[in-house]
Write a protein that binds this DNA or RNA. Structure first.
Lengths: 200, 200
DNA sequence: ACCTGTCTTGGACAGTCGTCTCAGTCACCT
DNA sequence: AGGTGACTGAGACGACTGTCCAAGACAGGT
């Protein structure tokens, strides 16, 4: 088996372990144990544990990105289109709660580790960028135009998503979360207008 | 020095260490080292490290609670009153960023530790309750009335605060955060109406 | 046949971790 | 004066951590 294949398997194993038991429990031994390898194999494939962590953060962020796009499908109005994307995310959250928790744990770990600090910012830059693209696409598909800086709307959406996630992870109150999301959705949809109604 | 005094000092030390180096770095040895005690003293004052963690979470949440109330002062309109409270929180965040990070780290650690799991929910229940009280007070002070379930408004505000905090912690973009907060403030203020304008 | 580079193995290294034990000290009360 | 109970000190226990090393396996090309 090639080193690249093993890297792949180790990354998978790391995600499995950390999802199940938390990032802190993702020691080199726990990871290699998950796929029946030796500790020395780990350091043959990765220079250090931090190198795996880097790679893991990058991959997970990319996965999130794909998932966000996949969840969106065109609907008559902007509000409905956004609602679809949001429902998609909520479903993802309800199905893999621990995986979202891992993303936060990794982010906080990166914030605390000088060697990984840049990745924490990068992770959020990715969120903003993806969200901007989705918002632009949603507006285009429904013939709408954002009346506020797109970057501000995107940041607002990321902020809302983050908040919804942390609060739900803490108390798992799906009903309350859904109500909050409705309100947030109202607000975001209010930041756009039909493209024919040129109000300025 | 009595055991109670030492408990106090150890809790302080724990907060200092964890604020500086992260919750993961808050080992029993690091904590006692901070105040020049012995490891055995730690376990004389606390049954276990988890017991200290419990106490720490409870205290920090209470501190947050006080800070939130202290920051609010009556202003002519509801929106301005809320703005004051929000500015107060943002100031607190800008001044002690790592302390807010500790709160998240502790919450996530609690979520991962069966023995502490109840505390994670409790922590957020406290947030909701405090926020409800603040919102009710703000409405009363400015002669307003919430047009939406107070519990929903409170959850919305907590969600927004959480989101604002995590995103700012990640990229420290204060300007962008402020803009997002303005929008959120607009939205929340829109959920109340002057008490004389009985629209129903 | 031999060498070379890729991969595999088991083990060692020097730490850190939470917890516990067990002598000791000291102030206080009778 | 003697004892009692709260508190302190040094150290040990076993388990776990990230990283590294040196010896072997095994293919491919010469």
């Amino acid at each position: 088996m090639s080193a690249d294949e093993r890297r792949e398997k180790l990354l998978e194993a790391a995600l499995t372990v950390m999802t199940r038991d938390g990032v802190a429990a993702g020691s080199t031994r726990a990871i290699v144990g998950e796929v029946g390898m030796q500790v020395s194999t780990f350091h043959y494939c990765f220079r250090s544990r931090n190198e795996l962590l880097r790679e893991l953060i990058v991959r997970l962020s990319a996965t999130e990105r794909q998932a966000a796009f996949a969840g969106m499908e065109p609907a008559p109005t902007l509000r409905e289109t956004l609602q679809g994307a949001v429902e998609g995310y909520l479903n993802h959250l309800l199905t893999n709660p621990e995986q979202e928790l891992v993303l936060f744990e990794l982010n906080h770990h990166a914030l605390r580790t000088p060697e990984l600090h840049d990745l924490a910012e990068e992770q959020y830059r990715g969120y903003y960028k993806t969200t901007e693209e989705i918002l632009a696409l949603a507006a285009e598909l429904t013939g709408s135009r954002w009346t506020v800086d797109l970057s501000t709307v995107a940041r607002l959406v990321v902020t809302a998503t983050d908040g919804v996630t942390t609060t739900w992870l803490a108390d798992r109150d799906t009903e309350a979360t859904r109500q909050v999301m409705e309100r947030l959705l109202d607000m975001v949809a209010d930041l756009a207008e039909p493209i024919d109604a040129k109000s300025s």
